[in-house]
């Protein structure tokens, strides 16, 4: 069980958060112009990396804000936390 540093509240136990899957997948602005395959790419395709993964997290039992987390899925080490709309601080 890890500790997440909510950018709005500070360090809290993982039980206060929920994970929203891979980050930086933008909803297409013109879905109607996409082919089935392009839409399916947005809808279904997600990375499942062993290693550094960019994720969305929600402080659901706290401030309820969404933000991004860079986590190493092999050891749960969190390398960075940044707000929605911000660029990842590391690659």
């Amino acid at each position: 069980m890890f500790i997440i540093n909510c950018p709005y509240c500070g360090e809290r136990d993982q039980t206060e958060f929920s994970c929203g899957g891979e980050a930086h997948i933008e909803r297409p602005k013109q879905p109607t112009e996409l082919s089935d395959d392009q839409w399916a790419e947005y809808l279904f395709m997600r990375k499942n990396i062993k290693g550094i993964q960019f994720e969305r997290w929600n402080h659901i039992h706290g401030c309820r804000k969404w933000f991004n987390v860079v986590r190493d899925t092999s050891n749960d080490k969190i390398h960075a936390v940044y707000k929605m709309g911000e660029r990842p601080p590391i690659k």
Partner: peptide, 13 residues
């Protein structure tokens, strides 16, 4: 509620 908050915060701020 969570779903609506998600869209408002992330897709349509």
């Amino acid at each position: 509620l969570s779903k609506l908050e998600d869209y408002l915060q992330t897709e349509w701020p």
